[in-house]
């Protein structure tokens, strides 16, 4: 019973992180692409596609952090000091991009300041999330229930590569989101951006997949053992199929297909990462069972999570439904 709750929570935390990546990915992505849209009207429209929902999207990041502290406090207290610099930079990036949603409507003279803040903040946040992922895969040294490494350990060629890959991947999500939510020249431009972003994302995923097994033999072992080996064979095929869906969707001027297929790419990549990690939560030092809080903690929050997460998903879906459809230039939400 004890083990079970920890695994339920590992799955739930993974779900929360995936929810964050799925929802805030396109949101950060439009920030990354922001400099490519030069006209003020275009920028207003681009911003308006996420303005009513960005705040909820970022709340999944808070739940990921807060949830980790509640149910895997040892993992939280080891990982966060290890990633001190990239996480601090991510938080500062999120500050700039978050306030830009309101500040850029409040000024003319400083409009470009907040537009750049939105864009650079989004890039920094995305890059640092990728760095964090890379550093986590490479492993964190733990001694005596605490992080035992230095404050630059996170900076490696691999973590930089995952950082860049994630920026590109989010840009793809952002571009396909704009294909879904905008019209006319703006949508055409988004389609134009989405194509190279798709190929670069494919490249990033390929590099990531081939590089990861080289980092540690345990990763290679996991991927060659049954039943993960089925996944190892299937995933590359599924990835190629989704890439084909994105490209053909773009060619046939479909609204939703490219975005949904791009989300599919992220879900596949995420599942792959999950398989690599299992049964560790902080490879190669802490397993899920090692890091879990007491049963009472896991059970108390699980009751709430199982009741409340479906409700949250329901009213989040409602909010998206209220603001469904295309955002036309100059139209806003009124």
């Amino acid at each position: 019973m004890g083990i079970d709750l920890a695994f339920v929570w590992a799955f739930l935390i993974a779900f929360v992180v995936l929810a964050y990546v799925v929802m805030d990915g396109f949101d950060l992505g439009i920030g990354i692409l922001f400099p490519l849209f030069r006209a003020k009207g275009d920028r207003d429209t681009v911003m308006n596609t996420v303005a009513p929902v960005w705040d909820g999207n970022e709340t999944w990041l808070v739940l990921g952090g807060g949830g980790l502290m509640a149910v895997f406090p040892l993992a939280y207290s080891v990982v966060l000091p290890a990633l001190y610099m990239p996480l601090t930079a991510m938080l500062l990036g999120l500050i700039f991009r978050g306030v830009a949603f309101e500040f850029r409507w409040r000024t003319k003279r400083w409009l470009s300041v907040w537009d750049w803040g939105f864009s650079i903040g989004s890039m920094v946040a995305a890059f640092c999330q990728g760095i964090a992922l890379g550093a986590l895969i490479e492993g964190i040294r733990v001694a005596d229930r605490a992080y035992a490494g230095g404050w630059w350990d996170w900076l490696t060629p691999f973590s930089v590569a995952t950082g860049i890959s994630l920026v590109i991947g989010y840009a793809l999500l952002g571009a396909t989101w704009l294909v879904l939510k905008t019209t006319g020249d703006l949508a055409a431009k988004a389609r134009h951006i989405a194509r190279p972003a798709t190929y670069l994302t494919l490249l990033g995923m390929g590099v990531f997949s081939l590089w990861t097994p080289l980092i540690g033999p345990h990763y290679l072992g996991r991927w060659l053992s049954f039943p993960a080996v089925i996944f190892s064979v299937l995933v590359p095929l599924l990835v190629l199929a989704l890439v084909a869906v994105i490209i053909s969707g773009l060619n046939r001027q479909k609204d939703a297909e490219p975005f949904l297929a791009a989300l599919g790419l992220f879900v596949l990549g995420f599942a792959g990462i999950g398989i690599s990690f299992y049964p560790y939560i902080v490879p190669p030092s802490l397993t899920i069972a090692d890091a879990a809080a007491s049963q009472a903690s896991l059970a108390f929050l699980l009751v709430g999570a199982l009741v409340l997460i479906p409700i949250i998903l329901a009213y989040t879906a409602y909010a998206y439904w209220v603001f469904r459809g295309k955002v036309r230039p100059g139209e806003g939400y009124h």
Binding site: L63, M69, L80, V322
Partner: peptide, 30 residues
């Protein structure tokens, strides 16, 4: 502190996120 007090204080803050933050953020846009 997080390692030691997390099992007690973490779920309390977890409930804050689940009951409050999402509610505010979800309905703020509307």
């Amino acid at each position: 502190f997080a390692d030691k007090a997390g099992p007690v204080i973490g779920p309390v803050m977890g409930y804050e996120v689940l009951t409050a933050f999402f509610l505010e953020a979800g309905f703020l846009g509307v």
